[in-house]
Design a protein around this nucleic acid. Structure first.
Lengths: 339, 339
DNA sequence: CTGAAAGCGCTTACAG
DNA sequence: CTGAAAGCGCTTACAG
């Protein structure tokens, strides 16, 4: 079942069928109708491999994930975040006639090969990559969408992000409003994570507004976002000080790990600690106590990334842009007024 | 940078370069060496779109997810299960030079189109699909791997599954050993889910071994696997009877939802109810109390599926087979001896 | 408005 | 052992 069969059936040339299918103007209404009927009756659809080869366009977008232990696996395993995102991308992209490929990546080299070899039309980078990689990729001359990046050198690319500063602000304000003054800030790394830095800036802003100082000794850094790290940092926090009453984290996963540590050490949430997460994973309202958190809609983020990318592919002259999605405080049981 | 450039550089014909790259015997050592050097120096790698078109083989495997609300999204959102699986597949498949595409699907029609249009070499079906779909797909004549299916008509295809019966058995035996006799079994649907039926059979086996009867009134059915459904069924269970002391579920997600319901109604786990989950999601050891559950290694499941599929693609004469992975009881805090 | 022909980058009988 | 040629299924200047 090829374009030739359709052509024969409709009594035209393959070229004409192609014109019709690609909406090239110069076909008479009558011929067009005949072709369309043939397509319909034969149940024809084009072979994208062939289209891809001759158009040099694949209708394929790639999603790159930072690679841990030989595959995106390890990273994916611990953070629900990623797969809600992927779902969002897949959904919009497929509605616009694109398919999605996923891969992890070590080396810029590998990544460029992947794009070339599969003729990818666009790329979404999920997570942090070395600058070298961006530079390589930019040379590829295909649209790129970045997620959650604040680095200066990414400014000229497309970005989807959330209002991280406001997220940090809302978390801190919530705790301050409840009377907490000794508040820990749990980040992956302020040095390496601009996202966490933004959140901390927002956090500090709330403190300034209240006229309260924040002690930098109350910043704790875990490097990964895993339950294990949450558990570890929770224990460390108990050991290190008994001043703290409030905790703001950069991830629900960390917050949940911490709550586990508290429970194991006979500390109660929210009686001993008020803790606020970040993300609002679906599990977060089902843990006990349910988690007060800053909600970001990761699914929407994926959708936004998909739209941005396909737009950029289809209108090459469009300017790169940054989309910022809102965040929202979800008040639940893990925080309460300091008595 | 095409095969011609390499040919020119090595002073041979494009055909010869292709022979070398595809390991077709009839090339002299010397020529081969020259070609390989050229490939190396020019940093050439083949365009898979072109290879795909001429070989009629794409080195692409597809993963099909049942579609909810226009995309696999909705389904993915609530179950971590899926993305660990995807990670496993991606990892092995990529090591074997394949790439992975993902899509959701409504209609057999759509699915067949996808396979044809992208020239997919193999397919993994994750989840339950209507029989009609399998029939359609079988006609496609590409290897197919099914996951967790017990239907008679799937027997002649490749399967990856776990020892569901033993899972049910272990859960029941654990509860029985702890002294529980009034035990609820929480399934999605015994009528529609052969997996749940297997588990229930194992469950009953343990009861028979102990010489204890199981009251079918203690079977509860939720249709989806979501926290919400767990919450709902948890409430229903409290309302319906106060005889029960033990609960076996077919999913950690359901168990966690149920625990939330109990907590909201002042019931304690494990004091009022001992509950065992199924899956051992990474979150399950971090909820409070940590969840006793039947562990299955979903990541391994993905890897097994990937291997099975690529094997079948590369050796078309290989027979279809079923791989069964073990399960394991993880005893944690949500179960205890009945006093 | 329509079609013949060349081309996208490979592979693979076939001939020598 | 090596290469010229045809072909995979499309698209797209170009000519008419």
């Amino acid at each position: 079942m090829t374009i030739r069969d359709v052509a024969k059936y409709a009594n035209v040339s393959p070229a004409t069928v192609s014109y019709v299918l690609n909406d090239v103007k110069k076909v008479s209404e009558e011929t067009k109708k005949r072709v369309l009927e043939a397509v319909d009756e034969l149940g024809y659809y084009p072979d994208f491999t062939a289209v891809s080869l001759s158009k040099r366009k694949s209708n394929l977008v790639g999603i790159m994930l930072p690679l841990v232990e030989d595959s995106p696996a390890a990273m994916l395993k611990n953070n629900q975040y990623y797969h809600e995102f992927l779902s969002g991308v897949e959904m919009v992209v497929r509605n616009r006639q694109f398919d999605t490929m996923i891969t992890g990546v070590y080396q810029p080299e590998e990544c460029r090969q992947w794009v070339k070899k599969r003729n990818l039309d666009g790329l979404i980078f999920l997570g942090m990559f070395p600058r070298r990689l961006y530079d390589e990729m930019t040379k590829l001359n295909i649209p790129i969408v970045l997620i959650d990046t604040y680095e200066e050198y990414t400014k000229q690319l497309n970005n989807v992000q959330i209002d991280d500063e406001r997220g940090g602000y809302l978390a801190a304000k919530h705790l301050l409003d409840l009377g907490h003054r000794q508040v820990a800030f749990i980040a992956t790394s302020l040095e390496n994570s601009p996202v966490d830095t933004k959140r901390y800036q927002g956090f500090l802003k709330a403190f300034h507004e209240k006229g309260v100082a924040h002690d930098r000794a109350y910043i704790f850094e875990t490097h990964d976002i895993t339950f294990e790290q949450g558990l570890r940092i929770g224990k460390a926090l108990i050991q290190q000080t008994d001043q703290l009453t409030g905790i703001a984290t950069v991830s629900d996963v960390l917050a949940i790990g911490m709550m586990k540590a508290f429970q194991e050490h006979g500390k109660k949430v929210p009686d001993d600690y008020s803790i606020v997460g970040f993300d609002d994973l679906s599990m977060s309202q089902y843990v006990t106590p349910s988690l007060t958190t800053i909600r970001q809609d990761v699914f929407e983020k994926g959708k936004a990334a998909g739209h941005l990318l396909v737009n950029a592919i289809e209108q090459p002259d469009i300017e790169n842009q940054t989309v910022e999605l809102p965040v929202q405080l979800m008040t639940r049981q893990s925080t309460k007024t300091l008595v």
